[in-house]
Write a protein that binds this DNA or RNA. Structure first.
Lengths: 367, 367
DNA sequence: TTGTAAGCGTTATCAG
DNA sequence: CTGATAACGCTTACAA
């Protein structure tokens, strides 16, 4: 009788359910992992008992045994990047539809220690909304640090898979910590393409869309602002150059800058002050594009110089800006990444085709 | 010799370390949890062995035993809200300084299931950067759903504490799932103030700062846009009314709207089109303030009507806007929340004093 | 189909 | 200080 001590309100365990349903522990376990393998009669009794007791299997105890193929981790590089948020949401939804739990976690620690000033990180791997447009260029090159403890803990949970969203600092370590889990990269291009499954937007197509659009409405002198702050920037700059070369246009109208508004402002100024300035400027992301717009307006060139962004974040939709932007289709990126994990095939590198969202920042004027 | 089977590359366990260091398992355990309690000689040997083997204690196995006072969970309501990101970063930094690991996790699922369109959530509890300013008002009232599975899993990890950042849908369930963990709320005002520790910005002071500033530069007819979309909005609207009443100003210049740009635009329009329009408009957050600015500019009233936002997000610092905004000091909020967890005292409700960041959107004109 | 027993990796207890 | 032994809650052979 005095089996359970005083009326302490302990969390019910499988043992409790088993006792109440008058079956053995392992049958209860079966009832939850393979319900079809247990007789309907007892199954019902077990489920009732569990219900009555408010029992739910302890996932941690579960994870101690081995790979849990009912849950995957989602590691997001920068939680303040709205682009990543879209990818994560889509991935989670897809995983949920496939019966998997997606545990999303932030993997990157901000600058060195002092959580005092909301200064935040600068360039973040892909064009996010970024931080305050203060002119603090890249102070310390890459202050972002991988939170190895968190990654290790996630690995201890033994998920069956991991989706890495965005560029994480120490990827090798992450993969190593994951043990047997399959890793899929989303919205990033991992350093070591050791056949790692990757789902990302096709930036080459994206910039071709932009250049095509601009040439279609008559622009011949098209510039680009970006190229700095990370791999994504480099790729987009290269894609711009390729697209421009394809069209036989001047490829020298490039000014370096990272993902921040300040960088866009400065770089655009440089371009606009040249002897033969561009009539259209493409930016590496929306935030930098806002800087470009500011530079253009400052020179009284509004409605004269077309501006485009990238990522189609909510910034582009802002009424005061109404920025033409490339939509990478982040939802599809997240969904595909999750699908790769659900169906264990290795598709190598999946490129998601972006589309162009045309707004008034690039409305025809010269054409 | 054939103790470990074939050359399978299994993760090293405490047993392996114990064997290599020629001590018992429990001594290894001690070496990691209470290093001072083991003789320097063997301690070194154990640490060396661990190092050589690449051993690190399995946190999951650890959690199975009971409360882990070396790690706390951080549950963030909306990961795309930059305000929360700042709070989270500060909390993590403070926890790290206190030797605790902060596992940050997203707890809220976006709208009903379809992760296809990047539509995203509408009002998000406190003034975030929000989503695209599309005019999709509050379609389904509150589509945000608590991810109970994730919360349950976090609870299974038995953290010693939990920081809830922002308004989470089903708070009671969260608290229940946390078992013995102490819960502290940050940047939100929980529904059931059952003495729950809370750290949040003092919005009353914030709006008083705004109103004081505006009256100081000569404004007498001050309006407010907000009040809808969540508790925070209601509170700020009330704080506005109080501040205005204190000053003996007209308190009827209020138009309802949520945290979106579209709402700010519409509500501001309503105010500006009145017979006796305001000369200054305060908004519930920065994004809505951008809508207000757009409405003001549309009517050719730029430099005539002052506009202020709230949260001092990067949006306020945008060059094209340069918005005066209340800075809630999110870093302090996050830090204090973490401190509450580190030192187990229950301070009840902690109000962090905000400051006003004055920018050109409210530059004196009439004064 | 159902029950028994042995782990998963760590911590806690309690003898030496 | 050290070292067996028993939990923690669940899964998984293996036996009935």
């Amino acid at each position: 009788m005095a089996d359970d001590g005083p009326g302490a309100t302990r969390r019910p365990t499988m043992r409790d359910v088993a006792d109440r349903a008058a079956v053995s522990k392992s049958l209860v376990s079966l009832a939850f992992s393979a319900p079809d393998a247990v007789s309907p009669h007892r199954l019902a009794r077990i489920l009732d008992a569990a219900e009555a007791l408010g029992f739910r299997p302890n996932r941690v105890a579960r994870s101690l045994n081995g790979l849990r193929d009912d849950f995957v981790g989602i590691l997001v590089a920068d939680s303040r990047n709205p682009v990543f948020a879209e990818v994560v949401d889509a991935a989670r939804a897809t995983l949920a539809a496939g019966g998997r739990l997606g545990l999303v976690t932030s993997a990157v620690l901000p600058g060195s220690g002092d959580g005092t000033a909301g200064a935040g990180t600068a360039g973040d791997g892909t064009g996010g909304a970024g931080t305050a447009g203060a002119s603090t260029a890249a102070t310390r090159a890459d202050v972002r640090r991988l939170d190895t403890e968190v990654v290790a803990m996630l690995g201890d949970l033994q998920p069956s898979g991991l989706v890495v969203v965005g560029s994480v600092p120490d990827v090798d370590r992450v993969v190593a910590a994951m043990g047997a889990a399959r890793v899929v990269f989303a919205s990033t291009r991992p350093e070591h393409p050791l056949g790692a499954a990757t789902v990302r937007g096709d930036d080459e197509v994206g910039l071709r869309l932009v250049v095509d659009h601009l040439t279609a409405i008559g622009h011949r002198r098209i510039g680009h602002v970006g190229g700095a702050g990370g791999r994504v920037a480099v790729d987009r700059a290269a894609a711009f150059s390729a697209a421009v070369a394809e069209r036989g246009l001047d490829g020298t109208l490039v000014a370096e800058g990272d993902f921040t508004e300040a960088a866009g402002f400065r770089a655009a100024g440089e371009l606009l002050d040249r002897a033969d300035p561009p009539t259209a400027i493409t930016a590496v992301n929306d935030l930098a594009a806002l800087g470009v717009v500011a530079a253009v307006r400052q020179r009284g060139l509004a409605d004269r110089v077309a501006v485009t962004g990238y990522d189609n974040t909510f910034l582009a939709a802002l009424g005061a800006v109404d920025l033409t932007s490339v939509d990478p289709d982040n939802a599809t990126i997240g969904r595909r990444a999750a699908e790769v994990l659900l169906s264990d095939a290795d598709p190598g590198e999946v490129l998601v085709t972006p589309s162009l969202r045309i707004r008034s920042s690039s409305v025809p004027r010269s054409g």
